[in-house]
Design a protein around this nucleic acid. Sequence first.
RNA 1: UCCGCGAUAGCUCAAUGGUAGAGCGGCUCCCUGUUAAGGAGAAGGUUCUAGGUCCGAGUCCUAGUCGCGGAG
Length: 391
Amino acid sequence: MGKIKFEIINKGKNIKARAGIIKTPHGNVETPAFIPVGTNSSVKSVSPRDLREMKAQAILANTYHLHLRPGEDLINKFGGLSKWMSWNGPTMTDSGGFQVFSLGIGLEHGVGKLLREEEGEPKPRLNKITEEGVTFQSHIDGSTQFLSPEISIQIQKKLGADLIVAFDDLESPKHNFEETKASLELTEKWLLRSKNAYKNSWQLLYGVTHGGAFKDLRVRSAKFNDKYFEAIALGGAHKNKQNMHDIVEWTVDNVSDEKPKHMLGIGEVDDIFELIERGVDTFDCVIPTRIGRTGFFFVSPSQGNIKNRFRFDINKPQFRTDPKPLDSNCTCYTCQNFTRAYIFHLFRSRELLSYSLLSTHNVHFLVNLTRQIRNAILTDEFKTLKKQWLV
RNA sequence: UCCGCGAUAGCUCAAUGGUAGAGCGGCUCCCUGUUAAGGAGAAGGUUCUAGGUCCGAGUCCUAGUCGCGGAG
């Protein structure tokens, strides 16, 4: 297979936003693109048929989860991730780096990668990090597992996703400068080892930038990644949205323009505008499926706005008898066929279809929004569209 | 009509004579490279009624009301 290429079609005028295409053996990824997350090689409760219909550009799965179950060898025997899950389009795998965090310092600090006002309860970590790699206690059966840059890349080669990610160590958003710097230095070692293990696979390997909330470290990490990688993923923790915006700018400004940039794990509606505006090409996020399973659905302006984060809770009593679709501007399967009252009933009854209808709508919503933004970039109307949404 | 059993949160039920609780439901909040069809919180009571015994009664006694079962 030939090398994967990224082509910028049309740069935004007076802004960094650009439209492009990542050409992979499994098809093109038209950017900017929202990439739905299918951790276990399934976008939870959303079928590949629906994902194709809504024109999702790629799906992201997880190295750690698929390694534990069913194992990369089996998926390899079935022709690789894309065919295995009957998606047959472009795929991406995350390295397992995030699980180093979420099963480690994330548990200890009771935090996510974004610092929140209310902290979760500190819990004992389920892994141990050394320079060599990470020893995990499997969340499935408690068995001891080991992951390192070499092993992660080896697994990702077998899984066969088009876009793969180097193995990294996530800092806690509560870490100070010195702690964050130490984590960054470990990440840098792991990135180089990841690249070495990758050698010249046909896949596109993304480096990952880190450095927490600190400009010095972020700039250093951007330059480091630009030196060694043809594609750049933005990772790590941040303090708040403003800090995240700054981080994207510090990073993008220090990375070669022509390289594709992927923001790991971000995607609320306002984030999507802000990221694209600052030069991010692709991003993935569990939000549409996770909040779908817990009862939230996206709504477009004017019902949706920054204040309500473009989302309503289907569980609210007000929707019990509401005959409207989830979002009156939406063209997804759910909105074309079902009422809020019906989905309210399904959700209260814990009918499986409710998770599916809500998740399908939410994924469609973000995929579609991102495609609208792409079109707006191509017609030089990005700013106008952003104003319509983020008033 | 008689006998027995029961009556405690919206529902189903706990609670040695010693601060009336749980599950579910209802309400509110949370979720950003998924340990997640997940998590958190608050509210909610004349313990059927009226008497009595006791320092103290959801608990023991008496009568009544209602429900269920059995007998006739």
